[in-house]
């Protein structure tokens, strides 16, 4: 039995774009240098992808790996899968210098969808969306808090800290209000 609930209970808002809080989603923060022996195996075992290049994501749908910094990766998977993934990582990287920590519960995740989804984020983040790569994982700020996002065919997925989920929902809803299209 899991009592796990997302930060905002999956609330949503409809403006000129659609905002919904989703999750909880499984996430592991993996700190290791790219040349560490077994890293490719660890990531393959955890999410089934190869090691992502700088600022890029590998994988799709429910399982993927993202580059967070020169020695940090974000592994995304279904919430219930983190235990097995942690065990696989520990096995693959045994004896190496690394740190893996489950961070599923430290995060809030939002979907911003619709044709003008980028406009919602362009009001909050100093990011040039015209030059955002298709597979790019962009870490930046949204108004006053840290955020990371990436895009897909129907919009964007945004991740922030759980404690500021209410603030983030407020920001996204305010930015998506009908009539405020850019």
């Amino acid at each position: 039995m899991s009592n796990a609930v997302s930060a905002l209970g999956n609330v949503s808002y409809n403006g000129f774009a659609q905002i919904s809080e989703i999750g909880p989603i499984g996430m592991i923060s993996l700190r290791a240098k790219p040349d560490v022996k077994g890293l490719d195996k660890a990531i393959k075992a955890a999410v089934g992808t190869k090691v992502p290049a700088a600022r890029q994501m590998e994988g799709a749908q429910e399982r993927f790996a993202g580059w967070m910094s020169p020695d940090e990766y974000l592994l995304v998977m279904p919430y219930a899968d983190t235990g097995a993934a942690m065990a696989a990582i520990d096995k693959a990287l045994k004896g190496q210098h690394y740190l893996a920590a489950v961070v599923s519960d430290a995060r809030a995740v939002f979907r911003v969808t619709g044709e003008k989804a980028d406009q919602v984020l362009a009001k909050l983040s100093p990011v040039d969306f015209a030059n955002l790569g298709a597979q790019e994982l962009r870490r930046t700020r949204a108004a006053q808090v840290a955020a990371a996002f990436w895009r897909d065919d129907s919009g964007y997925t945004l991740v922030c800290f759980r404690s500021v989920a209410t603030y983030m929902m407020g920001l996204l809803s305010h930015s998506a209000m009908t009539g405020s299209e850019l």
């Binding site: 700088a54 600022r55 100093p126 962009r138 870490r139 930046t140 700020r141």
Partner: peptide
């Protein structure tokens, strides 16, 4: 120099 982002001062 690590991630190549041309960061705005507010991100630093």
């Amino acid at each position: 120099p690590y991630c190549g982002v041309k960061a705005c001062e507010t991100e630093l």
